[in-house]
């Protein structure tokens, strides 16, 4: 996914508000709160989170502070088009220091969840889910030379070697939003 560098040069608040009211069923801020960022409204835009955010440091457009502000004023389309939240390393240093207990990390991830809900995601974003469903591991490798080399059995004692456990996990996943949204094929 390409990072969108371009935000409209001027933000038209009237248009943002109109779109929010007429085209969205729910305000983007309400959705973000619903998707886990319960303290969103406590943000006062102090910028502490941005000061230590790895994404802000390396030049992403919508790092934590700006993402929160854009959500608070009701921007959505621009955010759905942008991949910044998917670059968040979830380091949670922002959560540790936020003076308002907003947990900017949670906002980033709620944004991911919103993008998933709106299917505004690339295939790369759901690759891990597909692998999780198929193998029980987000990172999975078929080659087992490394394990053999260090003297371990080819299969670790995980879902990889336990069909019943893998079926359990799949049952769980089938009862989550992953299945509800039909994001990945589930037999």
């Amino acid at each position: 996914m390409e990072v969108m560098e371009g935000v409209p040069p001027v933000i038209n608040l009237t248009e943002v508000a109109r779109t929010e009211k007429e085209e969205f069923e729910k305000k983007v801020s309400e959705l973000i709160i619903e998707f886990g960022a319960e303290n969103l409204l406590a943000c006062m835009q102090c910028g502490a989170c941005a000061s230590i955010c790895p994404l802000a440091r390396v030049g992403f457009e919508w790092y934590n502070k700006k993402l929160i502000k854009a959500i608070l004023i009701g921007m959505k389309e621009e955010l759905l088009d942008d991949s910044t939240p998917w670059a968040c390393v979830a380091c949670n240093r922002c959560t540790e220091i936020c003076p308002r207990q907003v947990s900017p990390f949670e906002v980033m991830f709620a944004m991911r969840r919103l993008m998933v809900e709106e299917l505004a995601i690339s295939t790369l974003a759901i690759e891990g889910d597909r692998s999780l469903y198929e193998h029980g591991h987000a990172v999975y490798m078929t080659g087992r030379e490394a394990r053999k080399k260090v003297g371990l059995p080819e299969k670790p004692p995980t879902t990889d070697s336990d069909e019943k456990a893998l079926q359990e996990l799949r049952t769980i996943l089938k009862n989550t939003k992953l299945a509800e949204l039909g994001l990945i094929p589930m037999e």
């Binding site: 935000v7 409209p8 608040l13 009237t14 508000a17 835009q45 004023i73």
Partner: peptide, 12 residues
């Protein structure tokens, strides 16, 4: 102007 986003903003 919105210093948070670093952008000019306008509204009716």
């Amino acid at each position: 102007y919105d210093a948070d986003l670093g952008k000019p903003v306008e509204l009716i």
